[in-house]
Nucleic acid binder design. Structure first.
Length: 583
DNA sequence: GCCGTTTTCGGCCCGACTGTTTTCAGTCG
């Protein structure tokens, strides 16, 4: 019985909820919650980190929680958690997932009505029992019924590829109103997270009411969750929740910074402000007294740009993708932030499909589409023979395709180059789908996992290592093979894969498709820190998918990736020489 | 429970909205 990072994070998060219901000191509760957040997105296994004695080097992990992690790694259980469960019914943690129910209400329902499950809570509400409780009323009771209803509709987080277009459409509509001066998508979309909890929109205006009223009465609104003068929330028919904040333009910088988050980044920013005798909120930086109370008659510092806030706090400007409290504050203090890769640095696409397998366009059409988008060179990489469902190429068809690539390349002229490649399956037994004699004839070989993704860690790792160590394999495509939001990444030893990729100069892909974004940012960062080459590719199966490159770039930026780490920023000559020298 | 140019103690970010308890607690982000 071996617990994964996410299972361990989940246990700490549940401990936090249960401690909070018990009425524990809020800062102790937050410690468990912060530890859970740290662990949830760790790229490396806790087991490996623990083996090196490095647990307490992680932020928000001290001696107590490190010992609890070790206990879980060794026994698969946590005695502290088991004892908590004996005191606080676990169902209360689920009740707290209902919008509008926090620890105080959960405890109230439990103590007064012996409610320990969402189902029991629903029944009590329907029997009109909740409204009788102190602090409750008819409206609160109905809100809980609505919250339970919403919980059953909830499908989890929304992929950024789905959320961003919806957010942009609403923002564009509101910005067309005469009262709107400026607007932005804030929140996790602006930070480029792979999945979105809810959409945060920000608009600058001197007259908020008409904009707010338009917002809550949009035709695609399923229900209005809140409607105030500066803040409103709605749930769309699509299920997506959208929050809108409206402020005057003079507050733009502080407001945008606050509503972009992350919360952890904001907390650090506010701490730094306090150290300088300033209280930071969405309105301004305000001088405080020794008790940290705002001095009413002191002059506030208004920031109409985010840059001004960072400058005032003595920090280098932090781009939204890095605002996760993953070291960016420390780097900004020392003026040591990376120069992140941008879309303009990318001049090639090394992974795409044509009608030879499951793509929509011919080689020629794909090449023209890529040239139109400013690329200097591309690689055609159709599926290999064992992937029948995607019309994978037999060796004979692969050879035909190579001929056609050579021919079309001639026709395209000198300012554009097409390399002949493949996206070859790493088969379930760990062998490659084409023999070496075939692979060595190709310019560029991608190896990818498409089948048997549920295998045990040892098997998956061995398959990846076989591919990485094959001298003809140049790149691993979408290494974890996750699909957002529903297919989990494969379970593999990423420490070992990254080490092997660095030693063999095998590229690891950052697949730009918003359903993949694979490597994920945390692993991309670990890979580049270990000297692994990266590439950002669209894996396009149709022309419009070539425009998804920016999602991959954003994902890479979240992983602190710079242009120098990414091979498809290289000149044609450099890339050509590199593939030739690999043989 | 974590953390440290306030380092082994004493702090720990801040405001909007809602509904109910007519002055504020609870929840959320």
């Amino acid at each position: 019985m071996s617990l994964t990072n996410r299972e361990i994070a989940d246990i700490f998060a549940r401990c936090a909820d249960m401690l909070q219901i018990k009425g524990e000191n809020i800062h102790r509760v937050l410690s468990y919650r912060r530890a859970a957040e740290t662990i949830y997105d760790l790229p490396r296994d806790l087991r490996a980190i623990s083996g090196e004695g490095g647990l307490t080097d992680l932020t928000n992990i001290g001696k107590t929680i490190a010992a609890k992690i070790d206990e879980m790694l060794e026994t698969g259980e946590l005695d502290f958690y088991n004892r908590l469960k004996a005191e606080v019914p676990e169902g209360l943690v689920d009740i707290m997932n209902i919008n509008g129910v926090g620890p105080k209400k959960a405890k109230l329902f439990w103590e007064q009505l012996n409610i320990t499950s969402v189902e029991a809570l629903k029944q009590s509400a329907e029997e009109d029992k909740l409204a009788e409780l102190s602090g409750m009323g008819k409206k609160s009771q109905q809100k809980i019924l609505d919250g339970i209803e919403a919980l059953s509709r909830q499908t989890g987080r929304t992929p950024i590829g789905d959320a961003r277009p919806q957010a942009q459409a609403i923002l564009d509509m509101l910005l067309a109103l005469p009262e709107a001066i400026e607007g932005a998508i804030a929140g996790s979309i602006r930070r480029g997270r792979e999945t979105i909890g809810d959409v945060d929109l920000l608009i600058a205006s001197d007259n908020a009411k008409p904009i707010m009223d338009t917002f809550v009465s949009m035709e695609n609104v399923a229900r209005v969750l809140g409607h105030g003068p500066t803040k409103s929330s709605v749930e769309l028919l699509s299920g997506l929740q959208v929050d809108l904040r409206i402020l005057e333009k003079s507050y733009w910088g502080t407001a945008l910074n606050y509503f972009t988050g992350s919360q952890a980044h904001n907390v650090r920013m506010r701490q730094i402000a306090l150290d300088k005798g300033l209280s930071l909120n969405e309105w301004a930086l305000s001088p405080v007294d020794d008790n940290k109370n705002i001095i009413e008659d002191a002059e506030k510092i208004y920031c109409d740009t985010e840059e001004k806030i960072y400058e005032t706090l003595g920090l280098q400007y932090v781009t939204p993708e890095l605002r996760e409290d993953n070291g960016e504050i420390e780097a900004a203090k020392e003026n040591n932030l990376p120069t992140l890769i941008t879309r303009d640095d990318i001049i090639a696409d090394l992974h795409m499909h044509t009608t030879y397998s499951d793509g929509a366009l011919s080689i020629r059409e794909m090449a023209e589409a890529c040239r139109k988008r400013g690329h200097r060179y591309i690689v055609i990489t159709d599926h290999s023979r064992s992937l029948g469902i995607a019309n994978g190429l037999s060796i004979e068809r692969l050879m035909e395709q190579m001929e056609e690539v050579r021919q079309v390349n001639e026709e395209m002229g000198d300012d554009f180059h097409i390399f002949a490649g493949t996206e070859m399956d790493i088969k379930a037994d760990g062998t490659m789908d084409y023999p070496d004699e075939v692979l060595k004839q190709l310019d560029f070989v991608i190896a990818s996992l498409h089948v048997s993704l549920q295998q045990k860690r040892e098997q998956v790792t061995e398959r990846l290592l076989n591919a990485i160590n094959n001298p003809h394999v140049d790149m691993i495509g979408h290494p974890s093979s996750r699909l957002i939001p529903n297919r989990e990444p494969v379970d593999a030893d990423w420490d070992a894969a990254i080490k092997a990729a660095a030693e063999t100069n095998t590229i690891l892909e950052i697949n730009a498709n918003p359903m993949r974004l694979d490597l994920k940012p945390e692993l991309a960062r670990l890979a580049k820190d270990n000297g692994v080459l990266l590439a950002i590719n669209t894996d396009a199966h149709a022309e419009d998918q070539l425009d998804l490159m920016h999602f991959g770039v954003t994902n890479a930026r979240r992983g602190w990736v710079e242009a120098k780490h990414v091979v498809n920023t290289w000149s044609f000559e450099k890339f050509r020489d590199w593939v030739q020298n690999r043989g």
